[in-house]
């Protein structure tokens, strides 16, 4: 099943690379960029929210720090791509600090704490107009000088591919098993020697790096950012919803989720105009109520029924020798 998932995803991504060669409008490509960007963000979120089971609702923090890192460092005269890496570094540092504090908390406390950090960053960015431009916004340099929108699209696909490869590797690595052990039962994981604090932190750092990179791409696409756009809670929730809709803790879930959610949002934008966010709400409620494992999770569970059953489903009881029998009774007495 996993092999199939991976194969489908790889074929899909390779096919996606050739899409811009078709004559598509810039607008369509922009939407497709958004699909892949959020797929990558969802995959990054999945490391923390899916495999590790820590509901982060503050990923906008890393997204925004990546975006603002690009803008601010290049304002200092650093070249755009160097600024991107500095921004990503800054996002990782932020993640380290946020993780240190918030991973000590569990369940709803953790979720609330991540929201609080993202909101503090948003408010700081809003209220320091001398540094960040405040609500007026700040200019972001162009990352790709030529045939811009195609390059953004390709970088979105590549970022998704990278995030997917990383997830696939992590999922089968010792580290990945640690993460899943923490999700299933943190106390038990601790008791068998998993350093839960360190594992969770590493998952978050990797996740934040990808998210920061995504934020920088997003910012450079629009050339102009304001705090309420890149640091908003809407970004955090959208990232989480993409992953949950597709299936948190599944390999290609976030990719599927992003394709479904972003295309649904686009369609409903044309029908419902301003209230298109309604579809997000409805999708979340439907997913939670009817397929809590997400699209991919539910489908693969259904398909698992048709897998070849193991050859000896019920182990026959081994005959007990007279010697063993006497030993058992001896113990019982």
């Amino acid at each position: 099943m996993r092999k199939w998932q991976l194969l489908i995803a790889v074929i899909f991504l390779v096919a996606a690379l050739f899409v811009p060669l078709l004559a598509l409008t810039d607008y369509t490509l922009q939407i497709l960029f958004r699909v892949f960007l959020f797929a990558a963000l969802g995959l990054a979120w999945n490391l923390v929210g899916g495999y590790t089971g820590q509901l982060s609702l503050g990923h906008a923090a890393y997204f925004g720090v990546g975006a603002y890192g690009l803008a601010l460092f290049s304002k200092l005269g650093i070249s755009p791509w160097a600024s991107v890496s500095l921004g990503v570094g800054l996002a990782v540092i932020c993640a380290a600090m946020i993780g240190k504090v918030s991973f000590r908390l569990r369940g709803p406390y953790f979720a609330l704490c991540t929201i609080a950090f993202a909101e503090v960053l948003r408010l700081v960015a809003k209220n320091l107009p001398n540094v960040t431009g405040g609500d007026v916004g700040i200019q972001v340099p162009q990352l790709f000088p030529h045939s811009t929108i195609r390059c953004f699209y390709w970088s979105g696909v590549l970022l998704t591919g990278f995030a997917l490869a990383l997830s696939a590797w992590i999922e089968r690595s010792r580290f990945g098993y640690y993460l899943m052990a923490i999700r299933e039962d943190q106390d038990t994981a601790l008791s068998v020697g998993v350093n839960a604090a360190r594992c969770k932190l590493w998952a978050l750092l990797i996740s934040a790096a990808i998210t920061g990179l995504g934020g920088a791409l997003y910012a450079s696409m629009f050339l102009f950012i304001v705090p309420d756009q890149v640091l908003a809670m809407d970004i955090s929730t959208e990232i989480a919803i993409v992953a949950m809709l597709g299936g948190a803790g599944t390999l290609i879930g976030p990719l599927v989720g992003s394709v479904v959610l972003e295309s649904a949002a686009e369609i409903f934008k044309n029908i419902f105009k301003e209230a298109h966010l309604l579809i997000y709400g409805v999708l979340i409620v439907v997913v939670v109520l009817f397929m809590p494992e997400g699209i991919v999770g539910t489908i693969s569970r259904k398909l698992a029924w048709f897998k070849k059953a193991p050859s000896a489903p019920f182990a026959t009881a081994a005959p007990v020798t007279a010697e063993e029998e006497s030993q058992r009774t001896a113990i019982n007495q």
Binding site: L55, A111, A275, L277, L278, V282, I284, V285, V288
Partner: peptide, 14 residues
Amino acid sequence: ILLTMGLALILTDA
């Protein structure tokens, strides 16, 4: 948390 978030989105947009 997700469910109540979804509900909030629905109510706000409605």
